[in-house]
């Protein structure tokens, strides 16, 4: 575990100088917009999690971190595991920040200072500040999707090589949409029963529980991907 913490710190320090200014810009921009127009805009802060991951992958490949990892007194598998936990943690941190800022925006209700309070647009804005469920769903949803995509790409990139990444993304997206299209078509023709989206729990406690469960599941998935990748890579040479 100590190894993993050291490597995560190493990865974070590598990404920080490159990521910090774009991340701050995303946070400030998303928060400012969410204050006046819709709290769910906070979910854009997920982009600042991404900027902590993407440059790291680039630098690691360009500088030949594999050589460095070969000289450090840490277990090889833990280096891989750390990367996945890192991806989860930056996403998690972004998600927490989003929640705090969204709640702040909702309680400040700054849209009231905007002109033309009776306009049609303003009606939508007002509604968005009332709809806590949608905001929550958006934030947790974007977190889940982004974290899933990045950890999946990290796994594929490390196992099959980054150069194949685009191919893998296209294949994954293609098969996912084909699957969705298939299910929808079949449901439309009433060959299979229409899928009903599970409705969110009505109580706040229920919603919070659901959010926590989603986060834990996501952590589990990241750890699982990390484990799979680590197992695959230990057989390989640096």
């Amino acid at each position: 575990m100590k190894d993993i913490l050291k490597i995560m710190r190493f990865d974070y320090l590598t990404a920080r100088p490159l990521a910090i200014s774009p991340a701050v810009i995303f946070v400030v921009l998303a928060f400012a917009l969410s204050l006046f127009f819709a709290p769910l805009i906070c979910s854009y802060i997920t982009f600042s999690a991404m900027v902590f991951v993407i440059p790291l992958q680039g630098v690691a490949d360009k500088s030949g971190f594999n050589k460095l990892y070969g000289t450090l007194p840490v277990k090889r598998g833990n280096i891989t595991r750390a990367r996945f936990l890192y991806i989860f943690l930056v996403h998690f941190a972004a998600e927490m920040l989003e929640l705090v800022l969204a709640v702040t925006a909702m309680s400040l209700k700054l849209y009231r200072v905007l002109p033309n309070q009776n306009g049609e647009m303003m009606q939508m804005v007002r509604e968005s500040f009332e709809d806590t469920t949608l905001t929550l769903l958006m934030i947790i949803g974007v977190f889940t999707v982004s974290c899933l995509i990045f950890s999946y790409m990290e796994m594929m990139g490390q196992i099959h090589g980054r150069e194949n990444e685009l191919k893998i993304i296209l294949i994954t997206l293609g098969s996912l949409s084909a699957l969705a299209f298939g299910i929808l078509t079949l449901a439309q023709r009433e060959i299979i029963p229409t899928l009903k989206l599970p409705s969110l729990p009505a109580t706040t406690a229920g919603k919070v529980t659901l959010g926590v469960i989603l986060n834990i599941v996501m952590l589990g998935i990241c750890l699982l991907f990390g484990e799979i990748t680590a197992r695959k890579l230990t057989k390989r040479e640096l």
């Binding site: 710190r9 190493f10 320090l13 590598t14 100088p17 490159l18 630098v59 360009k62 500088s63 030949g64 971190f65 050589k67 460095l68 000289t71």
Partner: peptide, 14 residues
């Protein structure tokens, strides 16, 4: 084999 965008102080930290 180190990150090229860092300076000596940052490398030491790492």
């Amino acid at each position: 084999y180190l990150a090229e965008h860092l300076n000596v102080k940052q490398i030491e930290q790492q």
